[in-house]
């Protein structure tokens, strides 16, 4: 009985395959749909202006030209200056790297204290930090502008770094706290008996454990800071603007013919670093988000 091929099982396995293929097809359609804008951006950026005007939006470029990329990088005009994105890209790097590193480090220290060195009011302080995550950017614009002015860093890159660090601490603290809270308190006790102090325990025991959550925090912070527009446009001046503000200026301040190919190239250039971070560190991202749920 059992080794006879069952007619019903055969059909059900057939219908299973069909369903599976149907599923793949639907998923592919979705993927295509989501990739469409990127496709349009890429092809448009490789076309000449003439071709854009005459051809259709989704057609492939007839002659591939990198002129638009060149212009976007070093020749496009943002208002009166025509240096392209290059100086602003450099501004963004100068801004994002220190801001990410500092806010991650402070978040790690904060999380370590709140999770492992319980003191009176630790929970209250943590909740207040958490509250900081939910304050909309717009609310702090005016007080922050006044504060930067008082500190003498208004319109400078250090000023912007300061703003991003302050705004990031809530998130980074949350990440690290939730990670460290899963580590048994006995570890700190053992290290204390061994003679290690506050920073020694942090440096020798907790930081080496933290790679997954560091990656999560760095990706999160880098994306936030690199993509930020509001703080960038509010607290910078000519010469210190980040790439997002420059992109806006390139797209919005052209006169005459709209250079769609340059706009597209500029937009892709501005988005590249965050893409890169995801590709390089992405596999740690998921791992880090789920870490702590499984005991090591």
């Amino acid at each position: 009985m059992t080794d006879m091929p069952h007619p019903k099982a055969k059909t059900s396995s057939l219908s299973k395959t069909v369903l599976r293929w149907l599923l793949y097809i639907i998923l592919c359609l979705f993927a295509l749909y989501y990739l469409m804008p990127l496709f349009v951006m890429l092809t448009t950026s490789l076309k000449s202006l003439e071709e854009i005007r005459t051809g259709s939006l989704i057609s492939l470029p007839r002659d591939i030209t990198f002129d638009a990329w060149k212009t976007a990088w070093s020749g496009a005009c943002t208002g009166i200056q025509c240096e392209g994105l290059r100086p602003y890209f450099w501004n963004s790097i100068q801004l994002a790297i220190p801001a990410v590193l500092i806010s991650t480090l402070i978040g790690a220290l904060n999380g370590y204290v709140v999770a492992q060195w319980r003191f009176k009011g630790a929970n209250l302080i943590f909740s207040m930090m958490l509250f900081g995550c939910f304050i909309p950017f717009q609310v702090v614009l005016l007080p922050m502008a006044r504060m930067l002015g008082l500190m003498g860093v208004a319109g400078t890159i250090p000023g912007l770094i300061f703003v991003h660090v302050i705004y990031g601490i809530g998130f980074t603290t949350l990440f690290f706290r939730n990670y460290y809270v899963t580590i048994p308190h006995e570890l700190v006790k053992a290290a204390k008996v061994d003679g290690a102090g506050f920073f020694r325990i942090f440096w020798s025991i907790f930081l080496p454990l933290s790679l997954p959550i560091v990656v999560v925090t760095v990706i999160w912070q880098f994306t936030q800071i690199w993509n930020d527009f509001l703080f960038g446009v509010s607290f910078s001046q000519a010469g210190t603007q980040p790439v997002t503000v420059a992109l806006n200026n390139i797209v919005n301040s052209t006169t005459g013919v709209k250079e769609y190919n340059v706009d597209m190239a500029a937009a892709i250039i501005a988005a590249l670093p965050t893409l890169l971070v995801y590709v390089v560190a992405g596999k740690y991202f998921i791992r880090g988000l789920t870490a702590g749920s499984v005991k090591g």
Binding site: P184, E186, L187, K189, P208
Partner: peptide, 12 residues
């Protein structure tokens, strides 16, 4: 010197 229930070995 102290020995803990979870051993508290330094994982890394």
């Amino acid at each position: 010197a102290m020995v803990f229930q979870s051993y508290a070995l330094y994982p890394t």
